[in-house]
Design a protein around this nucleic acid. Sequence first.
DNA 1: ATACGCATAATTGTATACAACGTGTGCAAT
DNA 2: ATTGCACACGTTGTATACAATTATGCGTAT
Lengths: 229, 229
Amino acid sequence: MNDYDVRRDVSDQYSLRGRVFHKIRDDILNGKYKEGEELKEVSIGHEMGVSRTPVREALRQLELEGLVQIIPNRGAFVTGIQAKDVHDIYMIRSRLEGLCARWACENITKEQLEAMEENVYLAEFHVTKGNMEQIAELDNSFHRILYAACDSKMLEHLLIDYHEYVMRIRKKTLSTIERATQSNKEHHGIMEAIKMKDANLAERLADEHMKQAYDNMVKNGLFDLYREQ
Amino acid sequence: MNDYDVRRDVSDQYSLRGRVFHKIRDDILNGKYKEGEELKEVSIGHEMGVSRTPVREALRQLELEGLVQIIPNRGAFVTGIQAKDVHDIYMIRSRLEGLCARWACENITKEQLEAMEENVYLAEFHVTKGNMEQIAELDNSFHRILYAACDSKMLEHLLIDYHEYVMRIRKKTLSTIERATQSNKEHHGIMEAIKMKDANLAERLADEHMKQAYDNMVKNGLFDLYREQ
DNA sequence: ATACGCATAATTGTATACAACGTGTGCAAT
DNA sequence: ATTGCACACGTTGTATACAATTATGCGTAT
């Protein structure tokens, strides 16, 4: 992370509040706390050996992150993701990643472009080897590089927010080798468009890439754990 | 409040924390607290007659809203809006309002469409009369109707966020009668496209409308108060 | 048996006390 | 005069005590 940051950096790892925040967050994302479950300040605090104060603050942050809902005088509850929310987020992301790719054409640095090229070629290698673990990791970092390359703190944060948000669903996505191959080809195309500074093409390809990712996810029925009842 | 909510609903008006949150927020938006100014927990608490606890929580929320930056063990500082941020927000909004208009084609209710038509015709009337006050009010409500019509809590919240965010700049915008006339024509076009359920047209018009609004704002130099030094 | 009301428990909301951290000032050594 | 250090002060971080609100369970009346 380069300079100051407006929406994140909350959650410094070394304060109690930060540690509690990350702990609860992971527990939600990993499914330890399930949808609708109540998060009580005292029990969490006791469990982690801290008082209610840092727990409260962590829960307030998580509320703004959208992972918990706080009902005044009642408590904090884990929010569920509805199938429609997933759809909406992917469509929103498709527009915003398109915009991001457009801006990246003007603003990407040489280092970022090199990192992106390395990412794509490395991913192609792992695809041939079938290393799904590394492929998923490279997919994430491709998007992170793209987000940074647009040189807009506003847009970058927004996209990171949504990216993290869908990660809890996406744990098992990109799971088919066919999709991984196709996805990487799309990455390659976006990269080339940015390299050639073709803003219209870059925007269109990034937009379509996100829609493809969504369609694939739906086709493979890859988030039924979070399906609403 | 109807159902779950992902990013807001923090800030119930009736808790101390909620009141403090809104108070500080307004003070920042109205310019009482200036960019870079430090917000001390005790002084604000004393000023409002409350203890540090609700102030702390309010500041944490404001950090996630992007209005203050918190440096651990140092304090909370008001973040400024840069001209670039304004530009970025308008471009982001242009994409998202486009998406919103698209979805509105499928999901708008009869009541919402009627409200929209009424809004447009009423605005045309006030434009001929030159009632700038009412015109600005109608402009806001046109967009709110549009946001609700897309039937996506996710997108609606996001757009409302940004809408509120730019309001602090936009206080004096739409001030020329020429722009008001043009803006209302654009509203009319968006409405007609939604009415005809032409999603592609609606998306394009809404997107262009936002860009026009931005261009007009820049042309008239309408946010120099917040220009960075 | 069910529904209502009241008391009690559980939980969150707020205030305050104490600890930890950072900053600035003043004095001394050079 | 400048630099280094120590100490005091101010501010935030955390813990805990108390208040307010909500949930729960029991008893009684119908």
